[in-house]
């Protein structure tokens, strides 16, 4: 890699605590991390280790108790609510384990929900094409399988052409075959659109796909490693 590395995210002493007194939980205990742009990053770690909390803070869904988060050198942690909304609207996409589609909108309309407000969106149909759902785009969520729902969620997330895609256990509710399809799509997006992808997962095998694997334990990073060779999603053993 030549020249200066461009970082998508940089954090300084990121602390997040929930509750007070005896009930206080330290979810993040001073996390310092730099995540280069356009990488496929996997956050690993046991439940409660803080990986999801970091993801939520990076994505602007949550705020740190103290410490700083920079996105392309802009301090996300200092943003007021309006700026935060804009940040989510234009820069980041989310994919959840529970899909979180709006049941009252069709697949296409769920994607259009984003294209209507984004600055330079992909055409909604093109986004659905990328996840291989053109034939199901006029179906409502209730008429689709879990894998299809997650593909709609991905299409919705990438339609705004975000710089980063956050995925919180994207395959957690899916069978292995469908899970692999989803990971395939994510890898495609990373490679072809240059979108950074940050995935939180329990599935250790997913790590083989990553440029960078960040291991969490007890509210902090225990190690970061980079893969010399990235596996294809199809090669992963579950």
């Amino acid at each position: 890699m030549s020249g200066e590395t461009k970082f998508a995210f940089r954090t300084e002493n990121l602390v997040k605590t929930y509750g007070q007194g005896d009930g206080q939980v330290d979810a993040l205990r001073g996390v310092n991390v730099e995540i280069p742009a356009k990488e496929f990053v996997v956050l690993l770690g046991p439940s409660g280790s803080g990986k999801s909390t970091l993801l939520n803070i990076l994505g602007g869904l949550d705020k740190p108790t103290s410490g700083k988060v920079y996105f392309n050198d802009i301090e996300v942690s200092a943003m007021k609510d309006k700026a935060m909304t804009k940040y989510r609207r234009h820069n980041v996409g989310f994919i959840f384990q529970q899909y979180n589609l709006l049941p009252s909108l069709t697949a296409l309309e769920n994607v259009e929900l984003v294209t209507e407000i984004a600055k330079q969106p992909l055409p909604a149909k093109q986004a659905l094409e990328m996840v291989g759902l053109t034939d199901r785009m006029n179906h409502f969520p209730s008429q689709m399988s879990g894998g299809e729902l997650q593909r709609v969620a991905i299409a919705r997330a990438i339609a705004k052409q975000p710089s980063v895609l956050f995925c919180d256990e994207p395959t957690g509710a899916l069978d292995s075959q469908t899970g692999r399809t989803i990971l395939n799509i994510l890898q495609d997006i990373n490679e072809n659109l240059g979108t950074s992808i940050i995935i939180v997962t329990h599935a250790v095998a997913t790590a083989a796909m990553a440029d960078r694997v960040i291991n969490f334990a007890d509210g902090n990073i225990v190690d970061i490693r980079t893969n010399a060779h990235k596996a294809k999603a199809d090669e992963i053993e579950w």
């Binding site: 909304t85 929900l113 984003v114 407000i117």
Partner: peptide, 12 residues
Amino acid sequence: DLACLRSIGYTK
């Protein structure tokens, strides 16, 4: 649904 809209970038 509201939370979902907010996460996508819809304002309050």
